[in-house]
Design a protein around this nucleic acid. Structure first.
Length: 844
RNA sequence: GCCCUCGUAGCCCAACUGGCAGAGGCAGGCGACUUAAAAUCGCUUCAGUCAGGGUUCGAAUCCCUGCGAGGGCACCA
C-alpha cells in the first residue's frame, strides 16, 4: 500500500526507487564487489586507499553521516571507475564516554548499548550502500583491537614517549575525568560535558607529542593544496611555535640561573623586573627563602590564584595582580639588579614559567608596571604612521611593540628590530648567558582517563614491600589486558577510575617471584584508538601483529581522507604524531598518514545546526525511507561545494528524485543493441558525451561534485532532446550517452545507475565498469566563437573555423562592421589577439 | 589583538584559474496532457559579481582599503 505522495515519487513512468533498491541490494551482497585486493602484484593495477572518518555509535546514523559518507563514497567509486584497486573500509570508534554515560543512566553494560547502536548503524549503511569492504570491519572496543592499542602504548613507553608525571591538569567536574588540552574549548569549558573545566594537580600518563612539534609543524607545508587551508591554519595555530631567545638570569642568593624565554631579546636592556608564575616550582622555592612577610603574602596570593576558574583566568581584561617575592635577579647584559615578582599572568607551563618584563614594549608588562609603580624604560624608539615618535608608554599607558631604532641598549643602539634581535642573540651566546630558542603552545598529550569504557593501560604498579613504587609494563605476550565485566562495578563518575574497584582484576601476582602488583586503573583517551585505526584495516583479522608493514607499504599512506572539520586539530594531529612515531620505530615508510583531506560542511536546517532540542531535526532514516538512498545522496552532492554547509531548507530531494527518474527513462528508452557501433551515431550528441567523459575526472578530483551532478543533468537533458526530437532512440550515440551517464551517475546514485546498466544490457556491476577514454577527435571544436571587444565592450561575435590563425582573426575582427562602427574615426592604440577566445582593441 | 576562509539572479550554486557573467537546480510565470488535480513534458522571467580605489587592452577572478559573514589562536612572553 502506498500513499499518494510515495506514488508520485516513484514516478508514473516506471521509475520505482524502492523496487530498484530491493532488486540490487541482494545482488551486490552476493557479488561483494568492494573487497579490496591485497595481492602483491595486484594485477598491475594502481591502488588507492580511500577512508572516511569512522563513526561513533551514538544512536542511528544522522544526516551528518549521510553527507560525509556520501562524499567519501563518491571518491572511492570514482577511483574504481578509473581502473584502480580501491581499499575503502569501515569500522566503529566504539569506546568512549557517551556509551558509559548511557549505560549508567539505563543501568546496563556499555557493551550492550554500544553494540546495539553499531548493529543499527550497520543496517542503515546497508541500505545507504556506501561501497565498503565489509570483510575488514573493526570496532575499537573489541579486545582484538584494543590489544594492539596496548601494544602501541608499550612501544611508546619503551621509546620514552609515554611517561607519567604530576602536573596541573584539566578536570571535567561533570564527567569526573581529566581532559587533554585539545578537549578544552576556547571558553574554558569541556567539549564533552560543557562544564567549566577546573585545574587539578594529578599524576597522569602523557605522550610526548612536543618532541615532534617541529616535524608536525614543518611537514604541514607539504600538505598545502591537499588539505583545506583552514585545517592547516588551525594546526599551525595550535602548535604555536614562537622563535626568540632563552636568556639566563642570575638570582641573588641562588646557585642555579633562571632561564626565561622571550621573542624580543632586542629589548633586553629594557627589562626592569622579572615575573614568575605563582604555581611554578621556582615561585615556591623563592618564597621559601623570602622574608616571613613576603612568604605569607605569596601563599595568600597563590591560594587566591588557584581558586580562579579557567574562564576567569583567561579573561585578559582583568586587572593585573601579583606579589613581590623578596628576591632580585641580575640582567646578564647590563648587570642591573631587578626585582622578582610572582603574577598569574605568567603561565607555569609555557616557556620556562618565568619572563623578563619589558614594560615599555609589552602591554601586559606595562599594565603590571603601572599598577605596582615599577620603572618603565624605553629601549626602542617607535614611530607612528605619521612618522612622529610615539608617546612615552609610561605616560600614555600604551606599550610600543612595533619596529624602531634601539636606544639605551649598549651595543644594540642604532639597530633596527630585526638586526637587534640577531645581535642580542650573538651577545648572549658570546657571554654564555643565552641562546636562540623556540617554544611551543602545544603541550604533551594527556592520555589517561578515570573512566571504564576504554583501553586499559598495560602497566603494573608495585604493591608489595619489595616492589613498592616500581612500575613495569605488561609483557606483549600477555596482551590484551581485557576490561573486566562491568557487572558489580560502580561506573558512576567519582574521580577515580572504576577499574580500581575491580580488585580481582587489578591484583596480579608474578608467578615467578610471587611479588604483588596492581594494574593501572586508568583507561586511554579514545583518540589513541583512532590515531592508528587506518593501519588496522590493512590487517583487521591478523592476530599476530597490529598491522602488516608490507601491506602498509602497499596501501599507505591514505590517498584520500574524508571527515568533519571538528577533528581538524584533535584526531588529525594525534594521528599524524603516531604515524611519525611508527615511522621512527621502523614500521612505516611514510611520515604523513593522510595525503589528501576533504572536510565536509555541516547539514543545517533553517540556518541552524540540527538538534532534537531545537526541533529542527531532519531524520536520516525517514529521508532514506521516503526518498531512497540515491535521491538523498544526489541531493547532498548537488547542494553545493562539499566543504560548505548545506541548509536543508535550500535543497530539494524531490528535485533529485525527478532527475534520477529522467536519467533512468533515458536508459529505458534506448533502442539500439549493446555493442552498437558508436561512431555511427550523432556527432553532436557524441561530442557532448565525450566532453562529459573528459571533464568528469577533473571535477571529481577537485571535489566539484555539485558541478559534476549539474553536468549529468545537462547530459540527461541533451539526450532526452536527442531521443524526442533529434537522432532518435535507436541512434547509437544515445546508447553511448546513456552508458556514460550510468557509469558516472553510479558515483552518486548506485542503485539507479545499476538498474540503468542492466536496462542497457550489461551484467552487474556498473561499479566495477571502467570509464571509457574520451575520443580526442570529438573534443576538438571545428568552429569557435571569437569575441571582439573595443575598449572593453563586446562589439561583435564572429564564428570562425577552429584552425584560424592570429592574423586571420585580426583581419576578421577588423572587417566586422559593428567593430568598425565602434572604432569610428579614432586611432587604434593596442590590439590583442588571444586566438580561440578574443580580440581586444584599445583606442587612443 | 594576531591568523585563515568567504561575499555572483528571490534562493542554492557555475564561470576552462585574467578573456562573451550562466552550466545545473529550487522558487516564480506561461503552455501541453487531464473532467480536474498531482505527477510528467515543453517554453520562459530574473543579477553585472558587497562598496570604493588600483594594476591591465581586458578583473567576479590579481593588489590595497572599508563593510559584512564564518572559523582558529590568544595575559603564550
Amino acid at each position: 500500500m502506498q500513499t499518494s505522495d510515495q506514488h508520485a515519487e516513484s514516478g508514473a513512468a516506471g521509475y520505482d526507487f524502492r523496487a530498484i533498491q530491493e532488486r540490487w541490494l541482494p545482488v551486490w551482497e552476493e557479488l561483494r564487489p568492494f573487497e579490496a585486493n591485497d595481492a602483491a602484484a595486484g594485477g598491475g593495477r594502481p591502488r588507492k586507499y580511500v577512508l572516511d572518518m569512522f563513526p561513533y555509535p551514538s544512536g542511528d546514523l544522522h544526516m551528518g553521516h549521510a553527507e560525509a559518507f556520501c562524499f567519501g563514497d563518491v571518491l572511492a567509486r570514482y577511483w574504481r571507475g578509473r581502473g584502480y584497486d580501491v581499499l575503502h573500509p569501515i569500522g566503529w570508534d566504539s569506546f568512549g564516554l557517551p556509551a558509559e554515560n548511557a549505560a549508567i543512566k539505563r543501568g546496563v553494560d556499555p557493551r550492550e548499548w554500544t553494540y546495539a547502536n553499531i548493529a543499527q548503524q550497520k543496517a542503515s549503511f546497508r541500505l545507504y550502500a556506501p561501497s565498503f569492504d565489509w570483510s575488514r570491519v573493526l570496532h575499537t572496543s573489541d579486545p582484538e583491537y584494543y590489544r594492539w592499542n596496548q601494544w602501541l602504548f608499550l612501544k611508546l613507553y619503551e621509546k620514552g614517549l609515554a611517561y607519567r608525571k604530576a602536573s596541573w591538569v584539566n578536570w571535567d567536574p561533570v564527567d569526573q575525568t581529566v581532559l587533554a588540552n585539545e578537549q578544552v574549548l576556547a571558553d574554558g569549558t569541556s567539549e564533552r560535558s560543557g562544564a567549566p573545566v577546573v585545574k587539578k594537580k594529578l599524576t597522569q600518563w602523557y605522550f610526548r607529542i612536543t618532541d615532534y612539534a617541529d616535524r608536525l609543524l614543518d611537514d604541514l607545508d607539504a600538505l598545502e593544496g591537499q588539505w583545506p587551508a583552514k585545517v592547516l591554519n588551525m594546526q599551525r595555530n595550535w602548535i604555536g611555535r614562537s622563535t626568540g631567545a632563552e636568556v639566563e638570569f642570575e638570582i641573588e642568593g641562588r646557585e642555579a640561573k633562571v632561564p626565561v624565554f622571550t621573542t624580543r631579546p632586542d629589548t633586553l636592556y629594557g627589562a626592569t623586573f622579572m615575573v614568575v608564575a605563582p604555581d611554578s616550582d621556582l615561585a615556591a622555592e623563592l618564597a621559601a627563602s623570602a622574608s616571613p612577610e613576603a612568604r605569607m603574602r605569596f601563599q595568600e596570593y597563590l591560594a587566591e590564584a588557584q581558586k580562579q576558574s579557567e574562564i576567569d583566568r583567561q579573561n585578559a581584561d582583568r586587572p593585573k595582580t601579583g606579589v613581590f617575592l623578596d628576591h632580585f635577579a641580575i640582567n646578564p647584559v647590563n648587570g642591573e639588579r631587578i626585582p622578582v615578582w610572582a603574577a598569574d599572568y605568567v603561565l607555569a607551563d609555557y616557556g620556562h614559567g618565568a619572563i623578563m618584563a619589558v614594560p615599555a614594549h609589552d602591554q601586559r608588562d606595562l599594565d603590571f608596571a603601572l599598577k605596582f609603580e615599577l620603572p618603565v624604560r624605553v629601549v626602542v624608539e617607535v614611530r607612528g604612521e605619521d612618522g612622529e615618535p610615539l608617546p612615552d608608554p609610561a605616560e600614555s599607558g600604551v606599550a610600543t611593540a612595533g619596529d624602531g631604532i634601539l636606544v639605551n641598549s649598549g651595543p644594540l643602539d642604532g639597530l633596527g628590530k630585526a638586526e637587534a634581535i640577531a645581535r642580542a642573540v650573538e651577545v648572549l651566546e658570546e657571554r654564555g648567558t643565552g641562546r636562540a630558542a623556540k617554544t611551543y603552545r602545544l603541550r604533551d598529550w594527556l592520555i589517561s582517563r578515570q573512566r571504564y569504557w576504554g583501553t586499559p593501560i598495560p602497566i603494573l604498579h608495585g604493591a608489595g614491600d619489595s616492589n613498592a613504587g616500581e612500575m613495569r609494563p605488561v609483557g606483549e605476550a600477555e596482551l590484551p589486558v581485557r576490561l573486566p565485566a562491568s557487572e558489580g562495578l560502580d561506573l558512576k563518575p567519582k574521580g577515580a577510575s572504576p577499574l580500581g574497584a575491580a580488585t580481582e582484576w587489578a591484583r596480579v601476582i608474578d608467578p615467578e617471584t610471587g611479588e604483588e602488583w596492581t594494574r593501572d586503573p586508568d583507561t586511554m583517551d579514545t583518540f589513541v584508538d583512532s590515531s592508528w585505526y587506518y593501519l588496522r584495516f590493512l590487517s583487521a583479522r591478523d592476530d599476530t601483529q597490529a598491522f602488516d608493514p608490507e601491506l602498509a607499504r602497499r596501501w599507505g599512506p591514505i590517498d584520500q581522507y574524508a571527515g568533519g572539520v571538528e577533528h581538524a586539530i584533535l584526531h588529525l594531529l594525534y594521528s599524524r604524531f603516531i604515524t611519525k612515531v611508527l615511522h621512527d620505530l621502523g614500521y612505516l615508510d611514510f611520515e604523513e598518514p593522510f595525503t589528501a583531506l576533504l572536510n565536509q560542511g555541516m547539514v543545517l536546517q533553517d540556518g541552524a545546526k540540527m538538534s532534537k532540542s531545537k526541533g529542527n531535526l531532519v531524520e536520516f532514516a525517514s529521508e532514506l525511507r521516503e526518498h531512497g538512498a540515491d535521491a538523498l545522496r544526489v541531493t547532498l552532492a548537488f547542494a553545493g561545494p562539499p566543504e560548505d554547509d548545506i541548509d536543508w531548507a535550500d535543497v530539494s530531494v524531490q528535485g533529485s528524485a525527478k532527475f534520477l527518474a529522467r536519467a533512468w527513462r533515458v536508459a529505458d528508452d534506448v533502442a539500439s543493441e549493446p555493442g552498437a557501433e558508436f561512431s555511427a551515431g550523432s556527432t553532436e550528441l557524441r561530442r557532448h558525451t565525450h566532453r562529459l567523459l573528459a571533464d568528469a575526472p577533473g571535477l571529481v578530483e577537485q571535489y566539484k561534485f555539485n558541478v559534476l551532478v549539474a553536468r549529468l543533468m545537462d547530459q540527461v537533458n541533451v539526450t532526452r532532446k536527442a531521443i524526442d526530437s533529434g537522432a532518435g532512440a535507436a541512434d547509437p550515440a544515445v546508447r553511448e550517452s546513456a552508458e556514460a551517464t550510468a557509469m558516472i551517475l553510479s558515483l552518486f546514485a548506485p542503485y539507479t545507475a545499476e538498474d540503468m546498466w542492466a536496462k542497457l544490457g550489461h551484467e552487474p556491476t556498473v561499479a566495477l565498469a571502467v570509464w571509457p577514454e574520451p575520443d580526442p577527435a570529438l573534443l576538438v571544436e571545428d568552429e569557435i566563437t571569437l569575441v571582439v571587444q573595443v575598449n572593453g565592450k563586446v562589439r561583435d561575435r564572429l564564428t570562425l573555423p577552429a584552425s584560424v590563425s592570429e592574423s586571420e582573426a585580426e583581419t576578421a575582427a577588423l572587417a566586422s562592421e559593428a567593430v568598425q562602427r565602434a572604432i569610428g574615426e579614432r586611432e587604434i592604440a593596442n590590439l590583442i589577439v588571444r586566438v580561440p577566445k578574443i580580440v581586444s582593441i584599445a583606442l587612443r
